[in-house]
Design a binder for these strands. Structure first.
Lengths: 346, 346
DNA sequence: CTGAAAGCGCTTACAG
DNA sequence: CTGAAAGCGCTTACAG
């Protein structure tokens, strides 16, 4: 590998000059710059990032901390969670950073198992900033992250905060959109299968229903709001069983995610309830599961990739100006119609 | 941040000594080591990785190159591919490296769009080694990677080679296992819905059938082997349509992936063919889609996470001993029974 | 077993 | 606009 020294030698300038053109300094005459650049290209010179970082304290790396849960991807059947969630966001971040000099380094991190230690990425200060993906964090984690002094952006989930950057899609709006669609297609007797109460988004969804009551004139029977034990197919299956066995017969169901929706579908399959003829379903967090289900699930798409791209933008701005006020950018969810909602024409 | 200098000062030793204990050198007296270690802990000293790398040429980073395709995750419905593939492997790699000092940096890379340029990770020499995930590579890419001098390991797919390390699950074995299961459950009239012919695994699957002919006495009608246009639901749908419209009526179908299997299921749903009563299906690359399908798909699980873990091991060994012969480790696929295959008891 | 010294390849005031 | 020099925080022969 060529060094800056050699480049300087063949270009007939000092190392400083090469360094200045490398760093787009305005101090270099255009002519000189062009010349140096051509030599660099010719020699296929690429600066040593370690030397650079050592001297300027910029790592040129951004971390992605993927909050994971115990047994995240164990193959334990219908109950399992999947790694679907983070990949769209990760792709977005990666794409959003593709034209920069930042490399993206990932770390899976389990808040509960961490014993209070921050992710290695942060502790060893290998990154200039970090993205936090996933909802499995708590106050304490956030506090420690702040103490680290490394800027971070929470993406995909979370509540609007003012103590850090966040890019998210609001479950409240997702629920609202779901209800709106169901009502427009003539449904009146809705049911909400919410996530477990322990999740921060639980309340957010309840607000979505309230909004619909207010703005759309929804008449909602709160006995029709249930929470799952877990965000899984099994969770959805059991939740709808409770509803069904209690004798309730909603004509439209709003769910908290795709797995839950599929669990509900399974219950219906087994009990000869037809979707969408007898009951309609809207899923949340549209993904391949919705697409490939039968019937294909009408779903709220929360634009995960776009969330990632926006997060990259927010981070880049943050690094540009470390003291600027925190951003809260909302990414609008949209509804994608497939075949799990009975329409007025059906 | 404390530096090695300060640690040395409070420990009352020279910087070299601190460095030596940092690097587990046997040159340091046990007593001294303990003392230095305790000071390090107390001061919460963490070595500057850039300084370290600058001097010893070790990056302490491993790259994951995720081969992606144009429009990888565009939301264009039933035809789309998903990011499901790489995440299991990525998790495995990440876990396999969790107890080391390596950080893992990812880069999405499109061979076709690269214009012959290697991934930035490689060009800028930011990593000590790289994992290559995905089947979208060609001879030229491999050659260039080899020229870079950075060791790499192809994981998840590929053919046994001797010019680089590879960790993979053999589609041949997957097909063989599928056929074996179907035959054991009394199926005789099998159909293979293979991937597009352009994929390297296409031939491998054909070999799987041949093996079954030889070892299991399968009688296979080669008119019942079709290839999809793409590895998608749409691909599977169209492929089985061709078969069905030709009048063939297999009693068991072996597929090249889960999306294809689900496309086939959709065709059957629409044509009132019952799974598994009328025809059985075995999917490949078990994932959440199989689990949540209705009926849940019996599938070949290729242990992606394990592939990742093994790849991490292979890489660690490679870095330990750069000249050792290339490894080809096969990860055994296994069949997971769900409800898409009619059993003898049914 | 330990210390003094050179060197890794950059950046960045500072002089000119 | 350009060059000489110090410094970033480590590692690694080399002496001792």
């Amino acid at each position: 590998m060529a060094t800056i020294r050699e480049v300087a030698a063949v270009a007939g300038v000092s190392r400083s000059t090469v360094s200045l053109v490398l760093n787009d300094s305005p101090l270099v005459k255009a002519e000189t710059r062009e010349h140096v650049l051509s030599v660099i290209k010719e020699m296929k010179y690429v600066p040593n990032n370690n030397a650079r970082s050592l001297s300027n304290k910029i790592m040129n790396s951004l971390g992605v901390i993927i909050l994971s849960e115990q047994g995240d991807d164990e193959p334990d059947g219908f109950k399992r969670e999947t790694g679907l969630y983070s990949s769209g966001i990760l792709n977005g971040i990666s794409d959003g950073l593709a034209d920069t000099d930042y490399s993206v380094v990932i770390e899976r991190y389990n808040v509960k198992k961490s014993g209070g230690e921050l992710p290695k990425l942060i502790r060893t200060r290998r990154v200039d900033g970090a993205f936090v993906i996933g909802s499995l964090y708590d106050r304490e984690f956030i506090d420690k992250m702040k103490q680290s002094g490394i800027p971070f952006c929470v993406v995909g989930v979370g509540l609007p905060e003012t103590e850090y950057d966040v890019v998210w899609a609001s479950p409240e709006e997702g629920v609202f959109l779901s209800v709106k669609h169901l009502m427009e297609e003539g449904h009146q007797n809705l049911c909400l299968v919410n996530c477990p109460e322990t999740f921060i988004s639980h309340e957010d969804r309840v607000r979505g229903i309230r909004e619909a009551e207010k703005k759309l004139g929804l008449r909602f029977d709160w006995n029709m709001a249930v929470s799952t034990e877990s965000n899984t197919g099994e969770g959805g299956y059991q939740a709808i069983r409770k509803i069904w066995e209690s004798g309730y017969r909603p004509d439209g169901i709003v769910t908290a995610n795709a797995h839950i929706a599929l669990g509900i579908m399974r219950y219906f399959h087994e009990h000869n309830v037809r979707v969408p003829q007898d009951v309609s379903i809207v899923a949340y967090e549209d993904n391949a599961l919705c697409d490939y289900a039968y019937p294909a699930l009408t779903a709220i798409n929360i634009q995960k990739k776009l969330c990632g791209i926006k997060a990259a933008e927010v981070m880049l701005e943050r690094l540009e100006c470390i003291g600027k006020p925190y951003s809260v950018v909302k990414v609008e969810p949209y509804l994608i119609k497939r075949n799990s909602v009975k329409t007025r024409n059906d």
